[in-house]
Nucleic acid binder design. Structure first.
Lengths: 78, 78
DNA sequence: GAGAATTTGTACGTATGTATG
DNA sequence: ACATACATACGTACAAATTCT
């Protein structure tokens, strides 16, 4: 099945949409503890968004302490 | 006297420097409760930085709940 | 109320620096 | 040396909210 992606025609900001999608995957266990999140480049391609938008989405999850980002490594579920 | 500005040759990120300058002005009372912060355009000109950098600096203060930003209005000390 | 000007919000592109593998 | 990945910073454009004339 196709993975869920953001809606470019929605009024909701793309970064907010993406954060919600990733947050849901963490909440429902699709992404478990210590699991690696898709890289910024992967998120860019999969959702057709820019790097800045992908980064803002992940930043929201960091602010919520749902994930941890390590320079040069990536982002993992906490 | 000349206002304090960021150092473009410092190792410290420009946004971090600017946030520190504004944070100090709030702490020492130079900027008091309900006082308006310089607009993003003013910060750009006064410090010779881009808008994105100015926005990140103010964003830090928002994250610290030191200020409140309203679209079309600006940012004021809380 | 209309319209211009100002200010913040969102989105994208590019470049460079730093750290890891 | 190279590829990958995050960090910082420059730029552009347009949208949305507010203020001013």
């Amino acid at each position: 099945m196709a993975a869920k992606t953001v809606d470019h025609y929605s009024q909701t900001p793309l970064a907010v949409q993406l954060a919600a999608i990733l947050r849901a995957q963490i909440t429902n266990g699709e992404l478990g503890k210590h699991d690696q999140l898709p890289s910024e480049s992967q998120l860019m391609q999969e959702h057709g968004i820019s790097r800045g938008t992908a980064r803002r989405a992940v930043e929201m999850l960091r602010d919520e302490s749902l994930v941890i980002t390590l320079a040069g490594r990536g982002t993992v579920v906490k």
